[in-house]
Design a protein around this nucleic acid. Sequence first.
DNA 1: TATTGTATTGCGAAAATTGCAACATTGGGC
DNA 2: GCCCAATGTTGCAATTTTCGCAATACAATA
Lengths: 291, 291
Amino acid sequence: MDMEELRLFRHLAESLHFGRTSRACHVTPSALTRTIQRIEAEVGERLFDRDNRSVRLTRAGEGLKQYAEETIERWKALKESLAGEATLHGDISLYCSVTAAYGILPGILDRFRKACPEVHIKLQTGDAAQGLTRLRNNEVEVIIDALPDKQATGLEFMPLTETPLVFIAPLAFPETVIYEGPEIDWRKTPVIVAEQGLGRERLDRWFAARKILPNIYAQVAGNEAIIAMVSLGCGVGVVPLLVLEKSPLQEQITVLDISPRLAPFSLGVCTVKKNLRNPKIQAFWEIAGAR
Amino acid sequence: MDMEELRLFRHLAESLHFGRTSRACHVTPSALTRTIQRIEAEVGERLFDRDNRSVRLTRAGEGLKQYAEETIERWKALKESLAGEATLHGDISLYCSVTAAYGILPGILDRFRKACPEVHIKLQTGDAAQGLTRLRNNEVEVIIDALPDKQATGLEFMPLTETPLVFIAPLAFPETVIYEGPEIDWRKTPVIVAEQGLGRERLDRWFAARKILPNIYAQVAGNEAIIAMVSLGCGVGVVPLLVLEKSPLQEQITVLDISPRLAPFSLGVCTVKKNLRNPKIQAFWEIAGAR
DNA sequence: TATTGTATTGCGAAAATTGCAACATTGGGC
DNA sequence: GCCCAATGTTGCAATTTTCGCAATACAATA
């Protein structure tokens, strides 16, 4: 019986919903199903009465739920009591996209420095799209970034805040946006898109779902570059609102009210699951999620 | 933090000796070392101060030891309380070598039937050498047999009793054994050996260690066959004493006092480790080991 | 100095876990 | 009444983890 399994079980015992638990705990439904099956095999008894429509705890499940809660609690207590003995030290490497830097980095860093003054933070910033790559190559231990849409193997996410993904147009060059009645004529309106990254994927899917072949004027790297080009009248772009709000070019940009909206960006921290066994990173993780 | 890891840690925390713990818990020293390293990484602190000569619990180790004992205890309690709710039923498949059948099978079966009357036992018997194969092919869930010398991947053993491995000769044909002074002349004395199996391996190594090329008269399958051929004067053989004692041909056989002795057979139960998560098999396991 | 006992590590192989995609089932909306 | 969306499960392939063996490093002892 593993700690992670216990946590999954406990959450499911509360939510009574595989889908919600799997989303909340960042595992696929498949993994969750099989984890529960594993535990049931080990205990030798069904823990949930379930069909496609409903999930209920069995009597055995209730027993295990109590055990799970106690055990998790005692484990946490042990960790804390041990933490008191030796203060964490060393350093921890962070990668932070510019997007995320505005939104959440300062708060986290501030709290972390107070909690673990002996742990030095090596911070790198750069394009959001690079974060995951750096993580996979073990170039950094934690990234602060927008959360990808799909589950990625072996990665752990914690969403912290959201920011809308908005269409922007230049204020000084209204003719950039070409209308066809009340709607924008996407075949004619030039669009500035990111070379890669989550924003690009979202936009591609948005167009694809509407069977629109957009008139792509330029592909650039980084949200700041998109804002710059849009402000110069090169076309319409898509950026996280957060970035726009912090941009010095903000005055020269207008946000287009286009429906349906793009799904908002979810910003948070992300690391390789295995890293969470490292106490320093674990401490960082908890502090980041603390509010 | 896994149950199995906790058990290993607890044992080591008691024994303070990697070798002994690894033997007692049926894992290789290597696996034990790495398990401890894993836990230490997860806790973030050294649990044992150790070098080649000594092993001592650290303060953190003592904390974890207490946690481990409590957690294992609670887990056991939970299992028992759940077991009360639904009685085990179904069946469990056993393979038992003839050797082991004499020694320990009756007692185990007797106790198990009393403890789990709803679990039916499907028993097969046969040559000892086949047991491990059947286990690997999932043809049976548990075997009762002599324990192999080497650790086998994924297998779990529990030794229950021992019986010496003895050289036997026919009483009626004393000339079968050819002496050279006080010692037996192995180049001339014919030997009946098993085709395969642990007895064969032990004997091969016994000869090899003495740089003797034995005069092998016949290779047969099964200890009973060895006894039969020896009693007919075909040569000298090697069988577990237990089998000899139950043999109807016992009267026609004499045990040779040869030194150094062969290492005794250790008889016990064996199963695939994974099987131990199955509650029925686990119950069987505990009952088998109960005395 | 050789030998024995002890913990650790490199490495290849076996086992466990996971995500994806496909599936089965069921309830609700039109 | 039929289709669609939601939900839990399973086959499969790929990744990750774990393990045993053999080799190694080191110390005490003979």
